[in-house]
Amino acid sequence: MFEARLANGNIFKMIVESIRELVVDVNIDCSTEELSIQCMDSAHVALVSMSLSQSAFDHFRCDRSLSLGLNLPNVSKIFKMMGRDDTMVLKAEDSADKLMLMFENDKSGTIADFELKLMAIEAEQLGVPDTAYKCSISMPSSEFQRIVRDLQVMGDTCKISCTKEGLKFSATGQIGTGNILMRQNVASEKEEDHVTIDMEEPVELNFALRYLNFFTKATPLSPTVILKMSPGLPIVIEYPIEQLGHVKYYLAPKMEE
């Protein structure tokens, strides 16, 4: 059987909220090491890769690898009934035809339990090779969210270029062009405000702002976001979850003429 207890159930709720608009029916793969998800959106333009280590849980038991097929919008509805400070317990028999979710509130002593029917989901898995990216940028996730939101006003494509000048986000549309240039900033005493840019060679790629906007739903998970780019490759946008895991988004670029 599979049983996992997460004292800060809110982490799991935030993970569901960060991906449920991009991928609807997903398999949560349970192994002795971690809970993970790898799923593409229906257009095969974006890929979500989530991992939450067994070390994030106070109790984690996984007798044999399981795949829990879930409809994320339904899971999200159930999480609306979880209190902010609740402990979350997930439980499934090896037959895995249903998933038990329990929310325990120590203060009030209430326990809510829900049972979700599991689905058999045939999802195409992709082999994403480990890549040494030419540019790797770490920046405040709230800053990235603001840039994406602001540039959506200008157009629906964002050109992201990393040069020795810094990291530039540009969007052009009917009303004109907008550019936001971020420079390396490691001066501020708050680590979370740092912008670090490691550039091995300049990279310039174009992406659909609609997808970048979906990805910023993961902002509550992490104060920083890491962007990795190489010429002619999908961008990787990573939200680390402390030392416990991550939500990574891979986005295919738009093609230059």
């Binding site: 593409m40 257009a43 095969h44 333009v45 974006a46 890929l47 195409e124 898995q125 992709l126 082999g127 994403v128 090779p129 629906d156 494509t157 174009n206 659909a208 490759l233 999908p234 891979y250 295919a252 670029p253 738009k254 093609m255 230059e256 003429e257």
Partner: peptide
């Protein structure tokens, strides 16, 4: 607007 590429052009299915 620029044409959108697909992930399957970069990563192969497993």
């Amino acid at each position: 607007d620029l044409p959108q590429s697909c992930l399957l052009a970069y990563y192969e299915s497993r």
